[in-house]
């Protein structure tokens, strides 16, 4: 159902970041996205830091998807 579709979308997005198909995203991969997305490399650095929950410098699909679901469901409107 919807959960599977969401998982697929997360994987799509993860692959956009992980252009080399390594299975994880590095800070450098993230910075490369500033050519494709309307975000500065500084913004992308912030994104990386917020998604890299354990701060080891590698963004896994699990970390990526938990950040994505937080964006989808956990966003608080003040």
């Amino acid at each position: 159902g919807g959960h599977t579709a969401l998982l697929g979308k997360t994987q799509d997005f993860f692959q956009i970041c992980d252009t080399e198909g390594k299975g994880f995203v590095t800070r450098r991969d993230m910075q490369r996205l500033c050519e494709e997305l309307p975000l500065s490399s500084e913004d992308l650095e912030d994104v990386f830091d917020s998604l890299d929950a354990d701060g080891n410098g590698y963004l896994t699909l699990e970390e990526f998807s938990s950040g994505f679901s937080e964006f989808l469901f956990g966003r608080r409107i003040s």
Binding site: I16, D46, V47, L51
Partner: peptide
């Protein structure tokens, strides 16, 4: 709380990021 402030700022950046990915996906099939 400075941590709360940082989280709120990051939330905006994250939202921007995922929104961009979403529009990129739909923008180029």
């Amino acid at each position: 709380d400075p941590n709360m402030k940082g989280a709120a700022a990051n939330e905006g950046v994250l939202a921007n990021f995922f929104n961009s990915l979403l529009s990129k996906k739909t923008g180029s099939p």
